[in-house]
Nucleic acid binder design. Structure first.
Lengths: 207, 207
DNA sequence: ACATGTGAAGCGCTTCACAGCG
DNA sequence: CGCTGTGAAGCGCTTCACATGT
């Protein structure tokens, strides 16, 4: 019940958190069975996952909704604000600047960057698009730790290197390519084409 | 070396394919080691993954790049065109309509839908945004099998149900909620907040 | 009585290490 | 010799089943 939380559990905690937030505000308790149904997983998995956070359930009763929300938030580090920069302000970058900005309290977008001089200076979501040369300065000033890459594939690796050099510790890569980052910099990839191709595989197979 | 390809392998095949496509056009062969480096995985994994497609490598030499691209494409069902509809034309829906449209040959966007009457009739990426009532008709006419959900969370389940009823067999869900679909309908979730929260967890932990 | 927490078994993926083959 | 293909071992996650606690 201590330190090492399995990776797969970490990936499910945000889902549980969202399910808890979707409960009617009057509901004080929730069982592993109910939460499992909401999250689309099996109840034993919910209990095992939550047991990694410590024992916050009551046998014979269930989990206290508010305590559990708080505990998951703490575990995920959501009590603090994370400053985020976005590099590559095309269609997707624009969408994320708006989307991510209001959706999540813990993530604050503090900088938008693009290599295209025509875009620099434009305003978006209350921020001005800045040139790549300003990246190190803004990251340092704002204490940004997270960078979102929404550039074309051919630029992504270079941008990732610049982000790492500037002090970014985690990268969310939407560019359709694999990027390498130095040790200590975490990269997660979100790839539309990959997802479509996986769907294609199963469609192709099953009918 | 036959039928059952592990899920994890299916998810990596698109990555291998992209790595192969990024090779200089003169390069005819590639080793599992090289491909592994490009894809950011271990060479044994590449060989095991590719062995599920059959034996397309030559011992002592490597894999024929063109043959391998063809074979992966066939396995993923990319030789055929998949008709795709997008429901929910907000910022993200708009971005995907443009992005996905030109990026992938195998996926053709054939319909854009939104519940907002103000958006209906607008033009985007050569298509006109249509009302939800037209969904069944368009899906049937165009033979669409894949649906992309980019609605707000509260509308996603209802939209998924409508898609399933209309004959959609695979759903890519960008809405920040878990959706349930009937048997035979495959759902994949892409969730920005989840990804950010996972990054937050590791940042929080490691420093 | 009832739902959690958890050993233990089961399962699938990863990795190793080397046989097999050009 | 070099690199693939693969049995086998290793590892981590899932699921079961029930002891535990209220």
């Amino acid at each position: 019940m201590k330190s090492a939380i399995p990776k797969v559990t970490v990936q499910r905690l945000p889902v549980y958190l969202r399910c808890l937030e979707s409960l009617p505000s009057g509901q004080r308790r929730v069982s592993s069975d109910d939460l499992a149904t909401l999250a689309g997983v099996n109840a034993a998995k919910v209990r095992k996952d939550l047991s990694h956070l410590g024992s916050y359930g009551v046998r014979g009763v269930g989990y206290d909704v508010d305590k559990l929300k708080l505990q998951i938030g703490l575990e995920l580090g959501l009590e603090q604000d994370w400053a985020v920069v976005i590099v590559g302000i095309g269609n997707l970058g624009r969408a994320l600047a708006n989307y991510a900005g209001f959706e999540e309290r813990s993530f604050r977008i503090v900088g938008l960057f693009d290599a295209d001089d025509q875009k620099v200076g434009q305003s978006l979501d209350g921020l001005t698009i800045e040139p790549m040369s300003r990246l190190p300065e803004v990251v340092a000033e704002q204490g940004a730790r997270i960078g979102i890459v929404t550039t074309p594939a051919h630029a992504a690796q270079q941008v990732a290197d610049l982000l790492a050099d500037a002090g970014i510790r985690s990268i969310l890569n939407f560019a359709p390519t694999v990027i390498k980052a130095p040790k200590g910099v975490d990269v997660r990839r979100v790839d539309l084409s990959t997802e479509l191709q996986v769907l294609s595989f199963y469609l192709h197979r099953k009918g």
